[in-house]
Amino acid sequence: MEYQRPTVKAAVLLFIYFAAMAAGLVEFSLAAGYLTGQSAPTPGLVVACAATLLAGLCFLMWALWGLHRNALVLTRYAAPALTLAAVGHVAAIATGLGSVPKFMSVSDLAAFGLVLMALAGTGWLRRQHKTNDGGAGAPPRSGRLLAAAFGAAVVVSSVATPGLAASLAGQHAVPHGEHGQAPAPAQNTNLTLNQGHHH
């Protein structure tokens, strides 16, 4: 219905920028892994690190700017840039670049999925802009928009979390249940063995 279109558009806009911010964070984790995953980074990994770092910065800046403006910004460049990022992740997965270290292919796959989410939402909003925009002047319904924002956050985080966990930083992270706990005391196995031989 026409009166629901402003709410749907606002929800899709939030979904796009949530996905873009999450993709930016995964890109940062990939960039760190490309440089620190091996003792001697190759020139190809250095280029991949620079590309993913630049992509992460662009995604975060685009999302923050768009959320501030409450509109789809850089509409002319958004779709080509997102498409290029998606192709780059497909190439990284196909060539095995994302598998150095091996677990980083999951992060590449997560970044690819997040970029596709942002690309799909961007394409939908651009098509809506070109069609009849009846009801666009009405404000979005806050309750439905809040529910849509929560749903978008859940969907995006379900893709971003495994990608971040599979990154090099995620592999070395302390499990949440172990924060603030003292390390377990080392057991003296020699004492235990010696005590077992006393008669």
Rank of each mutant, 00 (worst) to 15 (best):
F15I: 00
R141I: 10
Q128E: 15
L35D: 01
F15G: 11
H172G: 03
N70Y: 02
L84Q: 10
A160P: 07
L45V: 01
Q38S: 14
A81C: 06
A165D: 10
H176P: 07
C49G: 04
T95E: 03
A118I: 04
V47R: 14
G137W: 10
A166N: 02
A94F: 11
H179L: 12
Y3Q: 13
L97I: 09
G137K: 10
A110W: 02
T42W: 00
A11M: 10
N70F: 02
S39E: 15
P140H: 01
P139D: 01
C49N: 14
L191I: 09
Q38A: 12
H197G: 01
S99H: 12
Y34D: 05
S157R: 06
L72F: 07
N188E: 04
A94G: 08
P140W: 01
N188F: 02
G98Q: 03
P41M: 05
G170D: 03
L193H: 05
G56P: 02
F18G: 09
L125S: 08
S29C: 03
L74S: 15
V106D: 13
A79L: 10
A118K: 03
G135W: 09
V159W: 01
L109E: 07
L60Q: 14
A85I: 04
F18M: 09
T52C: 06
F28A: 13
P101S: 04
V174I: 13
V156K: 01
M104G: 08
A19Y: 05
A63V: 04
T122G: 06
A152Q: 05
H68C: 11
V159G: 00
G33S: 03
F150N: 06
G66D: 07
E27Y: 12
A186S: 14
W62Q: 15
A186I: 11
R127M: 12
Y3I: 11
A184T: 12
T95M: 04
V46W: 02
P183M: 10
T189H: 13
A91G: 06
A48M: 07
